[in-house]
């Protein structure tokens, strides 16, 4: 079994009003040294090995569903889970 951690974030040209709101709130709390906050999505996917390379399958999942490549980019980490 693999554990895939997927991170989806907005492209630079895309607005991130939620990230900006968190940035402003941190400033109000006194963390004035915070430069910027980017708010994205995080997925943990547990997946069994298949005939296809796992990277190809994860790329496809990201392109088809997890990210909208018009607005977002993604990266992921794959690790093998220890058998129980």
């Amino acid at each position: 079994m693999y554990l895939v951690k997927v991170y989806v974030t907005y492209k630079e040209s895309i607005l991130d009003p939620k990230g900006e709101a968190v940035n402003d709130a941190l400033h109000r709390l006194g963390y004035t040294n915070v430069d910027s906050v980017e708010l994205g999505k995080y997925f943990e996917i547990k997946i069994k090995p298949d005939k296809r390379p796992i990277e190809a399958e994860v790329d496809e999942m990201c392109d088809r569903l997890l990210a909208n490549v018009n607005m977002e980019t993604y990266r992921y980490e794959i690790s093998q889970m220890e058998a129980l």
Partner: peptide, 17 residues
């Protein structure tokens, strides 16, 4: 329709949030 690729582009959050 944009998610389905039947129309180009995407709808992002309003500028004002």
């Amino acid at each position: 329709l944009t998610e389905a690729g039947l129309l180009p582009g995407a709808l992002q959050a309003n500028r004002s949030s």
